[in-house]
């Protein structure tokens, strides 16, 4: 590749064009699955909350099986990571829709006046929990007193809420950063970590230990996770596309849960290729998340009681949200 770079062209002005050269292979796109030319499809981007794993099965299936294409959407799927704040992608115009947590979204609306609306939720019950070893079990928030707990940055608020709701003084727990590696827990360097209870127990058992866990949800932190958030702008201008996205994504999740063992292996050479994780781990994850994603009102639905429970739990820690931050009318249009 020959690139002629004048001193001036290498400045900020010429940057975007040059940078495009190294992009391309970075995002997943649903365009390949559809038969229709992508010219007829509406471009639509979503920001996920983490790198590719079973947490996002429904969207991978909907892309592969052409559900988005059928709805007329060419989906640009952006994976996340520890320093990616999904809300930032919304604000910087990278995508009109993101999967994130209600506590961060409502915090941003209240503190910074961010123009967000929560239109659905992937997890009815937050899969975040306190994971420990069976031989040194932590069975309730009270057990954490005097222990070392590793917390990922994104879950700071959730942990504070759980401790407060259980009447445990934060100062009595030794909170350290969680660097996403269960090794210190397996080796006993820390007593517990905050992680997806649907995921990490598998790794711990592979490493020869037995894991035990409880959900923050069951100790008063009654909030969703992977809430579907859009900007007010998108809600006004792309409402129809968003409803179509919800319909196709729900179809993907429903197809997934017909047999949770079926799809993970089929993505071994696509979405799960080279992630550093194993297909067996994804199958475990997919089975474990089934009961907390499926809902009486249909996948993504938000009942009035559960919205109430979210607001009540967040109010306990001073995050004052309100009902109008949630919009259930799009789901009614599916």
């Amino acid at each position: 590749m020959i690139m002629r770079l004048s001193a001036a062209g290498a400045g900020v002005v010429g940057l975007p064009a040059i940078l495009a050269a190294c992009g391309g292979d970075d995002n997943e796109s649903s365009g390949s699955g559809g038969t229709a030319g992508s010219g007829d499809l509406a471009k639509f981007s979503m920001q996920a909350a983490w790198i590719n794993d079973a947490e996002f099965m429904g969207y991978f299936i909907a892309m592969t099986n052409g559900y988005y294409a059928t709805e007329g959407i060419d989906l640009n799927y952006l994976s996340g990571g520890p320093d990616v704040i999904p809300e930032s992608t919304l604000l910087s115009g990278g995508a009109p829709l993101a999967l994130t947590t209600p506590e961060s979204t409502i915090n941003a609306i209240v503190n910074d006046g961010a123009p967000f609306v929560i239109i659905g939720t992937q997890y009815q019950k937050n899969p975040i929990g306190v994971v420990s070893l069976a031989k040194n079990p932590i069975n309730s928030p009270q057990d954490l007193v005097g222990k070392t707990l590793a917390v990922p940055p994104a879950n700071t608020i959730a942990v504070e809420a759980m401790l407060k709701l259980s009447g445990v003084d934060k100062a009595e727990v030794n909170i350290v950063p969680y660097a996403y590696d269960p090794t210190p827990l397996v080796k006993g360097e820390i007593d517990a970590s905050i992680d997806f209870t649907t995921n990490v127990p598998y790794t711990i058992e592979q490493a020869g230990e037995k894991a035990t866990s409880f959900l923050l949800y069951d100790y008063g932190f009654t909030v969703y996770n992977d809430t579907v958030v859009v900007t007010k702008d998108a809600l006004k201008n792309e409402r129809e596309t968003i409803v179509k996205w919800l319909r196709a994504s729900r179809k993907g999740w429903e197809e997934n849960f017909k047999d949770p063992d079926k799809y993970p292996p089929t993505f071994a050479d696509t979405y799960f290729k080279g992630t550093g994780r194993t297909i067996e781990n994804e199958i475990f994850f997919n089975n474990a998340q089934k009961p907390i994603i499926e809902a009486d009102g249909g996948i993504f639905s938000m009942s009035e009681e559960s919205i109430e429970a979210n607001l009540a739990a967040l109010a306990e820690i001073g995050v004052k949200g309100s009902r109008d931050m949630f919009d259930t009318t799009l789901l009614e249009e599916i």
Binding site: D83, P182, T183, G276, R277
Partner: peptide, 20 residues
């Protein structure tokens, strides 16, 4: 590592971290 891009050695490292 922080940015969660689909490909890159840093991404591979992040995905592998969870595997102990």
């Amino acid at each position: 590592f922080g940015g969660g891009t689909r490909w890159g050695l840093g991404t591979y490292l992040l995905g592998s971290l969870g595997q102990a």
